[in-house]
Simulated scan of single mutants.
Amino acid sequence: MRKCLQSLVLVLVLAGGASSAWADDASDIRAVITQQLQAFKTGDGAAAYSLAAPNIQRMFPSPEIFMSMVQSGYAPVFQSSNATFGPLKAEGPGFRQEVNLTDPSGQSHIASYTLERQPDGSLKITGCSIRKGNDLSA
């Protein structure tokens, strides 16, 4: 009986630690995405680029090339407003974060970001896909 109680306490402690780590990850994820969206709004290519993972930086080898790609291919993200964070999921070695955005015309979009912790402990954006939302913002 005592061994069962010790095991139960250990499970509860570990679950609490995992919950705390998940909350830290969720907070970091929101911060990284928010920082990148703000960098896009202010035209700070270096800051936006610094939040992209190495796989993205290899495809777009300078902040200028990266910003040009985002502006032309991801306009709803580049010019977004009203970002609200939806579901966060663990996915493979990283995370998937849904973000509801509004473009300048008022159309809603859902940006689905993937992020991974890097060897230095930082969190970087590894990808983003966009789909239209179902509503228009007021």
Rank of each mutant, 00 (worst) to 15 (best):
T84Y: 00
A83H: 12
A52G: 02
A21Q: 15
I65R: 06
G127Y: 11
P119N: 04
S112A: 15
I29S: 11
K41L: 10
A23C: 05
A26S: 14
G45Q: 03
A18T: 07
C128H: 02
Q36P: 00
M1K: 07
Y49Q: 06
V32K: 04
F95K: 12
L51K: 13
P76A: 00
P93R: 15
T42A: 09
S19H: 10
S27V: 06
G106S: 09
A46N: 10
Q38V: 10
T102R: 13
S112P: 07
G92A: 08
L5G: 02
S105K: 13
C4Q: 11
I33L: 13
E98P: 07
G45W: 00
M59D: 08
P54Q: 06
M69R: 05
A48R: 02
S137I: 02
S137C: 05
G86M: 13
T34K: 10
G121L: 05
A39I: 06
S137Q: 05
M69A: 12
F78W: 08
T114G: 06
A53H: 05
G133W: 01
D28S: 15
K89N: 11
G45F: 02
Q38H: 13
D120T: 06
M67V: 03
S68T: 12
L8M: 13
V77G: 00
G73H: 02
M1G: 15
P54K: 02
A48G: 07
Q35L: 13
K124D: 05
W22S: 09
I56A: 09
E116R: 15
S20I: 05
G45D: 06
A18W: 14
A111R: 06
S27Y: 10
I110Y: 03
D44N: 14
A138R: 12
P104D: 12
V70F: 03
A48I: 00
A21R: 15
A75M: 02
S19V: 02
D25V: 13
A21P: 08
P76S: 02
S80F: 00
D120V: 03
A23Y: 11
Q118C: 01
D135K: 13
Q71H: 03
V9Y: 03
L37W: 11
S105D: 04
S62W: 03
M67H: 01
P76L: 02
S122L: 05
A47W: 01
L14M: 15
L115E: 00
A31Y: 09
S19I: 01
C128I: 15
S72T: 13
S122H: 08
P87K: 15
N82E: 12
G73T: 05
G73I: 04
Q35Y: 05
V99Q: 06
L101D: 14
G43A: 12
L14N: 07
L88G: 09
D25K: 04
S68L: 07
G17W: 04
L101V: 14
T42Y: 01
Y49H: 04
R30S: 12
A90D: 05
I29N: 12
V9T: 08
Q107R: 14
G17R: 03
T114F: 06
D44H: 01
F60H: 08
T102F: 09
G106V: 07
L88I: 11
K3E: 13
T42W: 01
S81C: 01
A47Y: 00
E64Q: 10
F85H: 10
L12C: 12
T34L: 09
R131L: 01
S80P: 08
I56M: 13
K124R: 13
V77L: 06
L10M: 08
S129H: 12
T42H: 07
